[in-house]
Write a protein that binds this DNA or RNA. Sequence first.
DNA 1: TTGAAAGCGCTACCAG
DNA 2: CTGGTAGCGCTTTCAA
Lengths: 333, 333
Amino acid sequence: MSKRRTTADDVARVAGVSRSAVSRAFTPGASVSEDTRQRVRQAATQLGYAPNAIARMLIKRQNNLVGVVMSDPANTFLSHLLTRLLDRLQGAGYFPLLFRVSRREDFDTVLPTVLQYQVGAIFVTGSTPNPQVAASCLNAGTPVCVLNRWVTGEYPGHVISCDHELGGRLAADELVRAGHRRIALVTSVGELSTHQARVRGFTRRLQELGQTLAGFEDGAPTHDSGFASAMRLLSSGARPDALFCTSDMLAFGALDAARKLGLVVPADVGVLGFDDVEMAAWPGYDLSTIHQPVHAVVESALSFVGHSPATTPPSKVLVPPHFVARGTTLQKR
Amino acid sequence: MSKRRTTADDVARVAGVSRSAVSRAFTPGASVSEDTRQRVRQAATQLGYAPNAIARMLIKRQNNLVGVVMSDPANTFLSHLLTRLLDRLQGAGYFPLLFRVSRREDFDTVLPTVLQYQVGAIFVTGSTPNPQVAASCLNAGTPVCVLNRWVTGEYPGHVISCDHELGGRLAADELVRAGHRRIALVTSVGELSTHQARVRGFTRRLQELGQTLAGFEDGAPTHDSGFASAMRLLSSGARPDALFCTSDMLAFGALDAARKLGLVVPADVGVLGFDDVEMAAWPGYDLSTIHQPVHAVVESALSFVGHSPATTPPSKVLVPPHFVARGTTLQKR
DNA sequence: TTGAAAGCGCTACCAG
DNA sequence: CTGGTAGCGCTTTCAA
């Protein structure tokens, strides 16, 4: 007994009108008499009818679906980005089709699939698609937009990101300006390309300021790894007087390590993070950090959806981050 | 110059075969000669053709879309649930259409919209839909599944949740068994119905154990609120010797408050959370908590997708949580 | 304002 | 194995 979903024809029959009339009754600015509209709406509710969005999509040859591809929604920072993106997308009348992929290669597999759903745009976070794959999307008329990571080399799609390298430079500036002189780095460059840019900006600026790195630890982008890295750094002979951690998660780990070693923050050791997730403002951490401009990134991204790559040529946008002073770095005078 | 997307007909023409052949070449177990399949695939890549999923959905009268409606993806606990759900859904070949709603009423508005996309199931987290709205979905043949919150009264859909009340009872058991005798409650019952169940179980069990509540604070479900509540409780004349916080977020706030007041945890005051989010295991908090069985909830939820409510009658499933002993509660002997 | 008819791009069923 | 044909449920001309 597979109950066939009620269609516009069913409603038309009950309301005693044509199928076209039903369609019009559900189309905002269509020319229908108020009388027929009422009759149709009534028959519709009676039968439990609702227009089939799939059929509508097919005939309109366009839909309000957008693809969102991301690596890890549980990642605190990404989840904030996602929330913001979802809110704004829905506010603009779009429906996000969400894909989670874990491995790098899966991004390239998933994009063509997303494309088949005739989405109006594809947003990618957590990795960068293969240029060829991106090109094929663009070719099909679908803008592809990489969020929050910079793409080096030839890449045909939209890229809109926080200026991670500038963030790294800011970090060096602030730490040195606050009086820290033996600065070490806790990072995850091996796993995350965004961290590479942060490290690059940081080390370059440090050099410009006449400082040398007092230590370096690379690991996973996790609290545990930050903890372990900081433990090594802070219990070594020549203890650093500040740690630049290339993400807040790493910084939280470092802070917990400093605490465990009985060090006073920031007097004994300053800690600077990157991202400015919600937790950074918690009194338990009160983390000084480099704030990523999530809102600006999302706003900028939104401007691409619905615009064919043919008319709106792919652009690369870099949004500047800024320093947020809290209690884990010395206060500059 | 609106470049019409290439269709199966275009490919058929180039490959010198019929449209049916093209369709077959893209259908896994169809009967096509290897020769034609090759020719078609080649013509397809040449033209940049990919089957239109929308059209396919329409004709197949079923699709692999599922609706996921949630309140706050940035909520640490929900984001874990979401990640898990997404992973398993994709693993099973489904495509999640994600909706974020903030206000209670919006849930009822959004469900009919989701329904229009002919989704195979709808998962709701963060609120409970109006029974009538749920019924209309069920009526349309789409299972609706409320995740992680219990529904009181008449409700026609699936409900699969952690047994929050049992979790509350466990909390009382563990705290008392560990030797805490002046136990206060930090919660957010005013805003979250899940917390209500936790509180109910907790207070009832406490009573059964012959204990009385040593304090009670209600507020927002945030770190800030937990901090403020604990501050009030712990600086009052008759200081509690343990705090049951109905979520980990509240507990983190309470822990920060205890630390700020110079209290030793758990000697001076024990703290017990609820959820067991990742952060609870961080050494900085090392929070004892009640673990929510996210995996079990998701597995159970998955079994409903694709099964018509007509054949699989709506069920209510309650999954038991368990206690996780860490460093913020006294160790029972 | 209304209804009839022609598809949207595809799959499924039929003969061949 | 293959090509024609008939729709999926809807919107949209086009006449009336």
